[in-house]
Amino acid sequence: MNTHLKHALPAWVWFTGLMLVFVILYAPIQSALVFSFSADRFPSLDITRFSTKWYAQVFADARVLEALKNSLTIALSTALVATTLGFAAPYADFRFRFFGQRMVLALALLPPTVPIVVLSLAMLAFFSRVGLSGTVGAIIVAHVVVATPFAMAICRLRLEQLPQEYETAAQNLGATPGQALRLIVLPHAAPAIGAAALITFAVSLDEYAIAWFVGGLEQTVPVTVLNTLQGQVDPTIHVIGTLAFAATLSLVFAAQLLLLRSTKSHKNKEVSP
């Protein structure tokens, strides 16, 4: 900020606010990590001994492992489908002019505005009618609806940075639409597609409400956590939490790195010699 612009309050006030917010955001995450290594059954400030016994217990728990398998299957399939849809739609929007174009975009951005409980009820009712309630497939289908808007937003932002002429220029030089897409658009969009896959994977891995309502007996990891929340203090939840944090945070940070690096290289390219 320029020197002639002074702040209404001294800098330390604003920075204290910044610290406070990060404490609120990260303290619960950190506490899960610390308590996951505490040997005590009840989490408290004076930890008597550290151990990895809760980790051993989690990995020996068939129920958790089954949930983990479900979660990974669902998250992988969701990431695959949601990223495909989330790239195809903005690409069509970027490449073609057609009737109802804005409506498609609006439709795709609608799900995040619907309260997750309401969406869960709608999904539960729908899948019960078609006889798919309680299946892993139903969770995947619903998770795709929840995750696609994220993939779409990421891909759209990236595609907007590509001047339309590049693809047409390739066709003008003899490339078919398929070749132009493969040789010009995909290399440009690759970081966004990667980031979209990571984020949609994280979103699905973390989603509990729909999985809880629609999944029936097919439990995912967040649903087992939700069930534990309702019961007694259970130290294994810290282990699951720590692993979940590690997984989703690395996914999200990897996605952010991908996007950050691509925008940086994009900016370098814009610099005129």
Partner: peptide
């Protein structure tokens, strides 16, 4: 850093 927690286990954070 501020946005990342949005995508990570909300339930476990509530438990914490």
């Amino acid at each position: 850093l501020a946005l990342a927690p949005f995508f990570t286990s909300y339930l476990v954070r509530i438990y914490s």
